[in-house]
Every structure is written in structure tokens, then in C-alpha cells.
Design a protein around this nucleic acid. Structure first.
Length: 221
DNA sequence: GACCAGGCACATC
DNA sequence: GATGTGCATGGT
């Protein structure tokens, strides 16, 4: 990726915000619920995650402390609507146990390490990759790290702001170089990109009314 | 009945 | 280090 697309990335944000307005993300009532949702949404549409969250709430299993004390098989049963539920149940358990043993179950103890140390810690947990780690840091920790998801990669490539081979880290760096390190800005920008993707980039792109239609783009992406 | 969705771990080359 | 595959449901 060319190193400086600051003007373009700022312009894209302005257009998306003007078109969609504030998104009020993450859709969760508590930090624990946010983290649980982040794990459940891996490679999964949010509508299915919402079902699983409801079931966990009904079963009073929507805190990390409760997850730590609930058998994996029971969690899998509750998380079933979110797909890949056996894996996700294991990841929830792994995370809850890790937080208890390493940070006495205290999220503040994790986040107060600061952005980079906390990120390294999260990435050491099996089941937490770059996107999930960044989502947790940004939305639960209010730390300024940009979350790159599949829609973001697609938008960047489509509008020629990223090489087709640009990876997660490269794309993340481009946004963080272009924008001031402000967790509220990163929060809104990521949410707006997801909304853009959901509306206009699913299946074949439908570019007619897309807020970015007038930007340069590659019609094949 | 495909194809997709707000990834990740692991195997293999 | 890049690429492929399993995980598995519900919506379109």
C-alpha cells in the first residue's frame, strides 16, 4: 500500500458518516458481552450471533466469570446458533480462564498495561487473532487501535487504496497513519465500513447509490 | 441449493 | 511466508 492516503481516508470517513450517521457500536450492554460477541462473530453473520447472545443471556451465562464456571458442552449448546459452536465454546472458556489466571478476572488490569502490551497479551490467547484482539481493545478497552475486517480490506482494494496483496497489518497501519489516534473515531469508522459493506458489497457490488460511487475504483473487485 | 458471514488454528508446500 | 482447509449455523 502506498504509505499516505490520509486525504482519501479522511474523505471516505466524511462521506460514510454523512450517508449513514453515527452507528453506536459495539452493540453490547457490557464489556463482557462485547468480548463474548467478538468471539462468537468470527466468520459469522451478526444476526446469528445475536441469537446466541440471547440464549446466553437467558441462561445467565453472559459474563466471563459465569462462562469460566460453565461446562464447555453447555456453552456449546447455548452458542449453537452462531455456528462453529464447539470451537467457539472452547475459545470462550479459554479466554475466561486466561483472564482469571493472568489478570484475576479484571479487564482493567489488562487494558491498563497500555495498547501494545495488552495487544500482545491478547494475541497470545488461542482463539484470539488480530481482528478479535483489536476489536476487544477498541470497543471494550477504548484504546485507539484500528479494526480491519473483510469489508475494510475489500473497500480499500476496490478503491485502489491498497494493493490486492495488502494484509491485515498493512491496511491497519494505513488507517492509523492517516487518522489521529482517537478511539471514538476508530470506533465510528470501522462501524461505518461494516455498514457500507453490508449495504453495497455483499454478493455483487451494487454501486449505484453507494456513497463512494464517485471515487476511483476497480469494477472487478 | 449454492453462497456467504464483522476469523482462527493448523497442515502443507 | 503464502496458500488451503475445517469449523457449522441461519439468511439471502
Amino acid at each position: 500500500m502506498k504509505s499516505d492516503h490520509s486525504a482519501e481516508l479522511t474523505a471516505i470517513y466524511e462521506r460514510l458518516y454523512a450517508a449513514f450517521g453515527p452507528q453506536h457500536w459495539w452493540p453490547a450492554r457490557t464489556r463482557d458481552e462485547m468480548i463474548i460477541g467478538a468471539i462468537l462473530t468470527q466468520n459469522t453473520a451478526w444476526t446469528n450471533v445475536a441469537r446466541a447472545i440471547d440464549r446466553l443471556r437467558q441462561a445467565d451465562c453472559l459474563t466471563l466469570e459465569r462462562i469460566d464456571r460453565t461446562p464447555t458442552g453447555r456453552l456449546a449448546e447455548l452458542a449453537r446458533p452462531s455456528g462453529t459452536y464447539r470451537i467457539k465454546a472452547r475459545r470462550l472458556k479459554t479466554f475466561a480462564r486466561w483472564l482469571r489466571t493472568e489478570f484475576r478476572g479484571d479487564l482493567d488490569a489488562l487494558f491498563s498495561l497500555g495498547l501494545q502490551p495488552a495487544r500482545t497479551q491478547l494475541l497470545s490467547v488461542k482463539g484470539i487473532g488480530p481482528e478479535t484482539a483489536d476489536a476487544i481493545l477498541l470497543y471494550a478497552g477504548k484504546l485507539p487501535t484500528f479494526v480491519v475486517d473483510a469489508y475494510t480490506q475489500r473497500v480499500m482494494r476496490r478503491h485502489l487504496l491498497a494493493m490486492p496483496t495488502a494484509g491485515y497489518h498493512q491496511t491497519k497501519q494505513a488507517f492509523e497513519h492517516a487518522l489521529r489516534p482517537d478511539h471514538q473515531l476508530y470506533n465510528e469508522y470501522h462501524a461505518l465500513l461494516v455498514e457500507l459493506g453490508k449495504r453495497y458489497c455483499r454478493q455483487r457490488p451494487r454501486c449505484e447509490d453507494c456513497p463512494l460511487a464517485s471515487l476511483p475504483h476497480d469494477a472487478d473487485l
